[in-house]
Nucleic acid binder design. Structure first.
Lengths: 159, 159
DNA sequence: CGTAAATCATCTGCTGTCAAACAGTCTGTG
DNA sequence: CACAGACTGTTTGACAGCAGATGATTTACG
């Protein structure tokens, strides 16, 4: 006895069985792993994931209120405050009051922000390839389509 | 114009485009939605998600150390302490020192725990059906297979 | 035997996220 | 105009998750 190979001698691990039975748990665990990888990548890049998404959206659709950013990026309002604080302090974004509705801001991307965004964007394909390299192109397409359906179901129910 | 449906008049929403480009973000957002649904369901059931998983694993593989439970269920050790505390206080689990290695516990499910588990298990199929009802059986199988591949890649790299 | 290293459960501190309350601003109705 | 209600951004408090340190116990080695 006592081959002492620790967990390996417990015969079959339990987790694969759980992942097969509980689709929700498998989804959450996989998401946590991917989120961690994204955080590591973002830390190496020096730009947080949320900050990157905000710059990307501002570049794509033009100046926005924090509210719109929060809703479209699925980031809580109170979290968005800190993200915009950091971006503004770094000079990547300007916060100007919308003259037509002084409750809201018109968050605008600066030239510095555009350059930073281009820099960060360049590293995304390699990150995605690295994170999902175990999946075939077919599987990536399937996953994308499935997630879109799940997300549509969520937004329609939470509305 | 000016139908005032708020976000709808902003033309095309940005989120679908983001979800299509960034598979990692789509995965995390979908996971968050599913996790929220699971928490709501668990709260209604009166048994936390983690507690449920622990009971289920104990029933499937027999008494375990907290360490083994943590590793197989992908729940942090320090979180497992609280889960076992709650289960023990509720009488669903006993914590006895493993006589062969008194550093570890032999966490054992009680009759009360078995009954509680059976009760909670009964509501899981309906929860899964409700959460993933937008997916066809084919898509659920695809999703399951893809998540298993992602999770295997994670465990092999984190090893 | 005795001491050092390893292991298990626990605790502490930190980070990130969410819910709820708050102040400032706008809209609508009399 | 005045005032009630809604909306935007911010702050606060609570909580999960994780890394690292600690105490108790076991194992390995001289």
């Amino acid at each position: 006895m006592a081959t002492t190979t620790r967990t390996t001698d417990r015969g079959t691990a339990y987790f694969p069985q759980l992942a097969a039975e509980r689709l929700d748990i498998a989804l959450c665990r996989a998401s946590a792993a991917v989120a961690r990888a994204a955080d590591v990548h973002a830390a190496g890049e020096g730009l947080g994931v949320g900050q990157h998404l905000v710059l990307q959206m501002l570049d794509a659709v033009g100046p926005c209120s924090q509210q719109t950013l929060s809703e479209e990026l699925r980031i809580d309002r109170s979290v968005m405050v800190g993200i915009c604080d950091d971006l503004e302090q770094a000079g990547h974004v300007r916060r100007e009051r919308n003259p037509r509705d002084r409750r809201s801001y018109a968050v605008t991307i600066t030239d510095s922000g555009l350059r930073r965004l281009a820099e960060a964007q360049a590293s995304i394909p390699a990150f995605l390839e690295d994170t999902f390299h175990t999946l075939t192109p077919d599987e990536r397409g399937q996953l994308s389509a499935i997630l879109v359906k799940l997300l549509q179901a969520d937004t329609s129910s939470s509305h």
